[in-house]
Design a protein around this nucleic acid. Structure first.
Length: 380
RNA sequence: GGGUCGGUAGCGAAGUGGUCAAACGCAGCAGACUGUAAAUCUGCCGUCUUCGGACUUCGAAGGUUCAAAUCCUUCCCGGCCCA
């Protein structure tokens, strides 16, 4: 499923084979939680260089429901995207919707953030929903605590995450065995079957386990080792960028990455600052996702292709009639002025959101692509 | 001309004797945002400040009072009603 091609001081590069094509690593996944990007069409997203889309189990389960999505031909058919899709399991909502859920060892009882309707997500539910959604990469349901939580809480989160991972794997295997209709691209990458599981042929979704453990080296180690013993197609590092400093986060990556199998992809969940991704790749990470570039864009922080950031809502841009970013990979920024973007965002015009989001997404995607190319081209 | 209601910080709008530099909303100024409850959130927003405070304000001018955005008098301006 994953072929490691090269390693250098800059990081690793390789290929990740999925039902909807092969991805060059390292890569960044734009977050389209409910199957859409705020302010961008998926055609825009593809034009800007996106190779894979991330969607969310919790949100799609609430609305429109996995049955609707399945009926529409799965996520790909529903949203109109032919490239790979990864679904997050809803584990992050255990963190972000903290006040709306109750955790037990069986799973998490949420009250919908929309109307309070009770819903239950556990290892089995998250797996069943993700199979129905039809993503190419799916995630185990995990317990993501704040990194600042007490050691006891993090220990408990690791135990649950491991239990849910084992159960998720069993449910996943059962669902894969049940599947009789082969995918159109079946067998395309049949030669590269990961050794740790017989089920990870490309007609099935790839299943990733998630390493928790907060800032505690021993808990991270325990979690990683037990996940590896269960065997997954890829390994994510979760529970980061949730309250700790960047240095603490790098410390965890220094601890965890050497423990992970070299022939499996590694996914740092929720991280997407360009400089942080560069550091993480150097430490051995292959995949990222993050809402930050889009959120900052909507809130007026614009990334430029020269690495600078600009607060486009500030007074100084009211009369700055230079182009947003003449060298931008986003065509909108090559033809529109800073003063115009300032005006659009101040006026609440949706077009401002589109131009801003396209810019930040383009810069983020091209940064990681350039990093990948440097690794690919670099000496071995 | 008579009556009546009103004039509060950039705008809108509370406050009707002391706890008022004056609620709240908008606009403005700056900041935050990391597996999206996020077109959200935080701070500032009369002037000066060594951030403890100091000083000048509530249409204008006088007055009552220990104390006035708040009460009285006159004037100016606006809305409505009557002539």
């Amino acid at each position: 499923m994953y072929t490691l091609l090269k390693e250098s001081d800059l990081g690793r590069c390789g290929e990740l084979h999925t039902r909807h094509g092969t991805l060059q690593t390292p890569f960044f996944m734009p977050v389209g939680t409910a199957g859409a990007m705020k302010g961008l069409t998926l055609e825009d997203l593809e034009m800007l260089g996106a190779e894979i889309l991330l969607c969310n189990t919790y949100h799609l389960h609430i609305r429109p429901g996995e049955d609707v999505v399945q009926e529409a031909g799965g996520l790909h058919g529903f949203v109109g995207w032919d490239k790979p899709i990864l679904t997050d399991s809803g584990g992050f909502q255990v963190f972000s919707l903290e006040s709306l859920r109750k955790i037990s060892d069986k799973g998490v009882a949420f009250n919908s953030h929309l109307d309070g309707t009770p819903l239950f997500l556990g290892a089995e539910e998250a797996m069943t929903i993700q199979h129905k959604l039809g993503a190419d990469i799916i995630m185990c349901f995990d317990h993501c605590p704040p990194s600042t939580a007490s050691r006891g809480d993090i220990e408990a989160a690791v135990d649950r995450t491991l239990r849910w991972a084992a159960e998720g794997k069993r449910v996943h295997e059962r669902l894969c065995n049940k599947r009789v209709t082969p995918s159109p691209v079946e067998g395309r990458h049949a030669a590269t079957v990961h050794g740790s599981t017989k089920l990870t042929m490309t007609r099935f979704p790839l299943l990733f386990g998630i390493v928790q453990g907060g800032l505690h080296r021993d808990l991270r180690k325990k979690c990683a080792e037990e996940l590896i013993a269960i065997g997954f197609d890829g390994y994510a590092v979760g529970g980061l960028a949730v309250g700790e400093s960047a240095d603490e986060m790098y410390g965890v990556l220094d601890d965890v990455c050497p423990l992970l199998p070299k022939d499996a992809p590694r996914y740092l969940m929720g991280v997407g600052r360009i400089e942080q991704m560069e550091q993480a790749v150097a430490k051995g990470i292959d995949m990222f996702d993050c809402v930050l570039p889009m959120r900052e864009a909507r809130h007026g922080t614009i990334y430029l292709s020269n690495g600078e950031k600009v607060r486009i809502l500030n007074n100084r841009y009211v009369r700055d009639h230079s182009f947003i970013d003449p060298n931008s990979p986003s065509p909108f920024s090559r033809t529109h002025k800073k003063s115009y973007l300032n005006h659009l965002l101040r006026s609440g015009e949706r077009l401002g959101e589109t131009i801003a989001c396209a810019q930040n997404m383009a810069v983020t995607l091209s940064s990681i692509r350039r990093l990948r190319e440097r690794i690919q081209d670099g000496a071995k």
